[in-house]
Nucleic acid binder design. Structure first.
Lengths: 236, 236
DNA sequence: GCGGTTGCGATTGTGTCCAATCGCCAGTAG
DNA sequence: CTACTGGCGATTGGACACAATCGCAACCGC
């Protein structure tokens, strides 16, 4: 597994020596959907931004037909809202939706983790430790958010079920905006708490202990939900 | 809530006096997607069936463009698999995917139920009892599957979160095929067990007891998973 | 007889053009 | 001044035509 790489089933990128990042060949609609997902996730396209078909088409050098299909796909991911004859906008969860999304994550992320434990390798665990070190050392909020995401997705490296990974990723994605916003105002105390939670999680994974792993993960998600809820200014 | 009515956000059907069944006006791609979902869910389109764009377009009186968008949407629902330049087929879960889908349901359906309890009305509970009576009385396997689905979705009537309902419905939908197949060979003993489980579930809902409601629901889903797994011939 | 190859038909992917709808602003009446 | 209404520009939805790709079968050589 590599960098951000949105989600959804990206093409195996066929015979290209090694896949660059987003499948650059193959069918444009998937490529365009990947482009939109990436742009939304890293904040280039803020919630509420209007997405004009022609503008996207021109930027990616295609016609509007693949763009429309891509918008349907990203809409199904919950990242975009499309309204008939009116246009597409980058989606934004309100507070209640955010709260429920996190409660969903509290239930399914631990399942993905338990299933992952059955297939996870020592190399995967070593990578987790390396990633966590990076998470702890970075000082850039945006980089912190990206690394944190990469760390958690890496804990699921041993999970082979695509539906589950897609679902987990989906709710990770739709809540990304709030994590990024919160990362801007987190203090050292908050960072320390995350460090402890992550380290305990890694230890449970290292011991292949699904009970502790689920406990620490659901606790981590729940505490994050509660912490974010203490900042109502994020949900204007 | 009415009959099958696939899932996903159907249009409010605008100014049409009352929505017939699937939004017949508005944008064709949604209408076509609804048509495909319905046809797949009630078994008219069996898993593995090839879906030719032109054929669907002709049947629904449109061109291939809305059909293509509809296929992308239904693909995102997990009901169809699209392959570049090769075509779309009705999806079929293998055994492992089925097993994981049910384990996901064991975790998130109870959440939907707990949230539903906060908003459910006495009329909703009365409707549950009426539906359950129908479930118990029907002798047609296909009608049993449809009513069972309607019953369970009705237990979520008090849940207002769209993401959660869509996710719950998604995994209900992708596993529908196996429930229908199993319904053909269930015996009286199996039917009785389901009756007891449903009645206990209704009682917990009636008492607005989230602990018992979650317990009975997750137990019901788990037992169903185990029972279906005892019929490997369904997963050829 | 069999494996590989090549060409053709069928089907999907995409660009272009036109129709349908929406939002907004000017204009008008009260 | 405000609320309504009509029309215009911008944008999306859809049909058609053409290009790209795939699957399959016939053919060829061994």
């Amino acid at each position: 597994m590599r960098h951000p790489e949105p989600m959804s089933d990206q093409q195996p990128s066929q015979d290209a020596p090694e896949g660059l990042e987003p499948a650059k060949t193959g069918v444009s609609s998937r490529r365009i959907a990947d482009y939109l997902r990436t742009a939304i996730l890293n904040g280039e396209l803020a919630p509420g931004t209007r997405l004009r078909q022609e503008e996207i088409a021109e930027r990616l050098g295609s016609s509007r037909i693949p763009v429309r299909e891509a918008l349907r796909m990203v809409e199904a991911d919950g990242l975009v809202v499309v309204k008939s004859y009116s246009g597409a906008r980058v989606a934004k969860l309100d507070f209640n939706e955010f709260d429920t999304a996190y409660r969903i994550r509290e239930r399914i992320d631990p399942l993905a983790l338990t299933l992952s434990l059955e297939g996870i390798t020592d190399e995967d665990v070593a990578r987790l430790e390396a990633l966590e070190t990076e998470v702890e050392e970075t000082t850039s909020p945006d980089r912190f958010v990206a690394l944190d995401r990469e760390f958690h997705l890496a804990t699921y490296a041993g999970c082979t079920d695509k539906q589950l990974l897609e679902t987990v990723t989906r709710f990770w994605n739709t809540t990304q905006h709030y994590r990024r916003a919160y990362a801007q105002l987190i203090d050292d105390r908050g960072r320390s708490i995350i460090t402890y939670e992550h380290r305990l999680l890694i230890d449970a994974i290292h011991r292949r202990d699904p009970i502790d792993a689920e406990r620490f993960l659901s606790g981590h998600i729940r505490r994050t939900r509660i912490t974010l809820a203490e900042h109502p200014e994020l949900f204007d």
